[in-house]
């Protein structure tokens, strides 16, 4: 456990010692702020109009504003996380520091978990920036807090799937750009895979809908904590990390 923490700390320090953390968090904050503003003014206009017919009518802040904000955030995450995960393994392999990790008394699982939690910590820091925006809504409005908490949980779990996938892809190449591009393509595919679902037969439709990473996020943003989604996300993460362990081991045998 100590080793996992040591690696995670090293990863996190690495993000903040290089421009990566600042660029990624900055970009995320900028995009999130823009989407938040756009949705807020739209919400404002809608509630004005609703108020116009027979007295003021408060709209549901959670459903009409916070939920779309979370769903939009998941799109930004899709663009940002490949930049976080693409260097995790590729950079270590290119610079030779992988020799240090693989010859230290560490297991592959410890190294991979360390890298996973390091990237997740950066992702959590990124999400923490958005707490400010949500806090403003609590200050001036009266939203439910539970859907906000489940929404964040959903975003964290979805990000976990992306990070696990990103780690796997980064462990397969020495080239950061290749790792980043392939990771992005896979994320995008996981996002849109159910768009064609309605044109398929019932079985294929169910499978495609189930595979889509964002489909499972929807219930979280509504404030629904469904075990089927938890199982989906957690098994996705575990499987991704397991494949990374196998990939690193295979790489080792190939030399």
């Amino acid at each position: 456990m100590g080793n996992v923490i040591a690696i995670a700390q090293k990863e996190l320090k690495g993000y903040f010692a290089s421009p990566i953390a600042y660029v990624v968090i900055g970009f995320f904050a900028l995009m999130f702020g823009y989407f938040y503003y756009a949705l807020l003014v739209f919400f404002q206009q809608q509630s004005m109009q609703a108020g116009g017919f027979g007295g003021p009518e408060a709209l549901d802040v959670n459903q009409q504003l916070i939920r779309p904000v979370f769903l939009n955030a998941s799109v930004i995450v899709l663009f940002v996380l490949p930049m976080v995960t693409m260097r995790t393994y590729a950079e270590e392999k290119r610079s030779g520091t992988i020799e240090l990790l693989l010859t230290a008394p560490l297991t592959d699982v410890q190294i991979i978990l360390g890298k996973f939690f390091g990237a997740m910590a950066l992702y959590a820091a990124m999400l923490a920036v958005t707490v400010v925006h949500v806090a403003v809504l609590f200050l001036f409005g009266n939203p439910e807090w539970r859907p906000v908490v489940t929404g964040y949980l959903g975003l964290l779990l979805m990000g976990g799937c992306f990070v696990a996938t990103g780690l796997l892809i980064s462990s397969l190449t020495k080239n950061q750009i290749v790792a980043g591009m392939v990771t992005f393509a896979v994320f995008l595919m996981l996002w849109v895979i159910n768009w064609v679902a309605s044109f398929q037969g019932p079985t294929a439709q169910a499978v495609l809908n189930y595979l889509s990473v964002t489909e499972h996020l929807d219930d979280f943003t509504r404030g629904i904590l469904d075990t089927k989604h938890l199982v989906y996300y957690l098994s996705f993460i575990t499987f991704g990390l397991y494949l990374t362990v196998r990939a690193v081991d295979t790489e080792r045998w190939k030399g």
């Binding site: 090293k10 320090k13 690495g14 010692a17 290089s18 610079s95 030779g96 520091t97 992988i98 020799e99 240090l100 010859t103």
Partner: peptide
């Protein structure tokens, strides 16, 4: 203790 051919240093540390 192992010193590989290229010292395994992290440039940002």
């Amino acid at each position: 203790g192992y010193l590989p051919e290229t010292p395994p240093l992290y440039p940002d540390m």
